[in-house]
């Protein structure tokens, strides 16, 4: 076996070993395990709910409206007689479409803004950061209410809106780590050999800030679900007749006193999802911090 083969094998091994060590550590954390199982369950459900639901979630049955949980309808029926159990299972799709896409958008935008402002600093940085400050002075939901009530709503609008709202938040995080990296000598060394700014930002600095970006992504995903569901609840997101959880809770609210199961089950479902995502995010954060 040649020296080169040997070293490339050891290189692979070392990379695998590191990945395995990180993952092994994650697996040893109970909160990660619980969170991951729940998240995976909801993702599988979001994709394959057609195969999982006992009844068509949109099938109306006015005669069986507002029934409590029975053997036929495990979670009862809603005001149109639709099966709450089926609707709860089908309700994860919309939020699991919106949240990851919005997160991706926000992370991408925030990474670009954070890299550029952090790397260049100076007047542009000061200006952008003031804008970010001003932007952050508005509670997220208020911006969403303002914009969506004016522009009208669609799934795409909600994704873009959450993505745009996340951009300044993410950019702040990225900027703060870029500020630290920028002053390290490897960047000075790159400049001394005549590298361009773009190369330094993308090839030298970016790989060194991936850890905080990953952590931020998982945290943002939790917030994205939070926000998307809240917008649905305020009737500013997904529209009828979607089985979306936030929307269902919003509409079923008026039956709260006679048929609390209509809102209770989607609420619990949503709660498990957001808590699970945050459990995973928190575990990743802890492992990455070491």
């Amino acid at each position: 076996m040649s020296a080169l083969e040997l070293s490339s094998r050891s290189r692979l091994d070392s990379r695998r070993a590191r990945a395995r060590a990180t993952f092994g550590q994650l697996l040893r954390s109970a909160s990660f395990d619980v969170g991951a199982v729940i998240v995976v369950f909801w993702i599988v459900d979001a994709i394959f709910w057609h195969a999982l639901v006992p009844q068509d979630p949109q099938a109306l049955n006015p005669l069986a409206a507002l029934q409590g949980p029975t053997a036929a309808h495990w979670f009862g029926t809603d005001w149109l007689g639709r099966d709450v159990f089926s609707r709860t299972l089908a309700g994860s799709t919309s939020v699991l479409e919106i949240a990851p896409l919005a997160t991706l958008l926000g992370i991408a935008g925030g990474t670009v803004v954070g890299l550029v402002t952090g790397y260049y600093g100076g007047a542009v940085d000061a200006l952008v950061m003031r804008l970010v400050d001003a932007f952050l002075a508005f509670p997220l939901v208020i911006i969403a209410v303002l914009v969506l009530s004016l522009l009208g709503t669609s799934e795409i609008t909600v994704i873009v809106l959450i993505g745009v709202i996340f951009t300044p938040v993410v950019s702040r995080t990225v900027r703060s780590v870029v500020l630290v990296e920028r002053d390290k000598e490897y960047v000075a060394s790159a400049r001394l050999r005549g590298e361009g700014d773009w190369y330094i930002m993308t090839a030298e600095i970016l790989p060194n800030v991936t850890t905080p970006i990953i952590v931020e992504s998982t945290v943002r995903l939790g917030y994205a679900i939070f926000t998307a569901a809240t917008l649905s609840f305020l009737s500013l997101g997904i529209q009828q007749p979607s089985p979306d959880w936030g929307l269902t809770i919003s509409l079923g609210r008026q039956y709260l006193q006679i048929a609390p199961w209509i809102v209770l089950f989607p609420a619990v479902a949503l709660a498990t999802l957001v808590v699970a995502v945050n459990l995973v995010a928190d575990s990743i954060q802890q492992v990455m911090a070491q």
Binding site: A229, I249, L264, A267, L270, V274, V275, V277, N278
Partner: peptide, 10 residues
């Protein structure tokens, strides 16, 4: 992690 409307409803 819990949205206010979820806790609110519960």
């Amino acid at each position: 992690a819990l949205p206010e409307f979820v806790t609110g409803i519960v």
